[in-house]
Amino acid sequence: MSYTVRAIRAELTKQRTVPAPTWLLAVTLVALVGIGLAVVGTVDLEHCPPGGCPEDLARHSLTGTVVAQALAALLGVLAVGDEYAHSLVGTTLVAVPRRGAVVLSKVAVTSLLVSAVAVTGVAGVYTIGRTMAPRSGFTTANGYSPLDLSDPTIQRVFGGTVLYLLLVAIIGLGVALLVRETAWATVAVLSMLYMIPVLTQFISDPSWERLLQRLSPSAGLAIQNTVVSANPPLTPWAGLVVTAAYAAVLATAGTLIFIHRDP
């Protein structure tokens, strides 16, 4: 077995044998599916004029991503932060002295776990959207087409959500490599994810709002848009690229620091 594959196996065992990652993944799943259930169940089309509101069913049903992203990021933070918290970094590096392999194994395992849960969660949400949404008024008669996975847009929304969650987890990992401290890495990641969405709720200047939305680490949520406005701040894929850029920069910086600084 190659060096890196061994490191990945060991990392997987590490994640499997402490309770926190399992809990986080379970809560991520519950958040995705549970919030999807709540939103699809309560969404209210009665106020809509004839012809229907431009309600974005696919995006609405994935509202849980707003919570799930933080949990995915936390999984990344803990993969690194927990080792610093318990001085395990030294043990890890004695077993796997090549720093690059250690980071790679953490990225691989975190991605694997997050993807597995994201795929499951998104599948659950899709099922909810198909079965429950018609009961909330999203019927063909009202002008809404049912969710259909053969539709490339729907594929992009649900597949893109999985990718987005994966990228956010890597952002968490990168921040933790830089900060080396679970608590402050958590603060940094949560602030990054929520600062701009909260701020854009208040500000009213459209050009500022667009700028902030383009700069936000959570810009990747644009991948969930199906009802695209005339001039969106970001196209779906451009949004995902912004998030991917954050993930790449933070993970690279974190890796460099990890390689060049004594633990």
């Binding site: 969404v43 974005d56 609405h60 707003v66 854009t200 709720q201 949520l221 969930q224 009802v227």
Partner: peptide, 8 residues
């Protein structure tokens, strides 16, 4: 009438 979406 209020339109609801995650963007605000």
């Amino acid at each position: 009438r209020t339109e609801r979406s995650l963007a605000g």
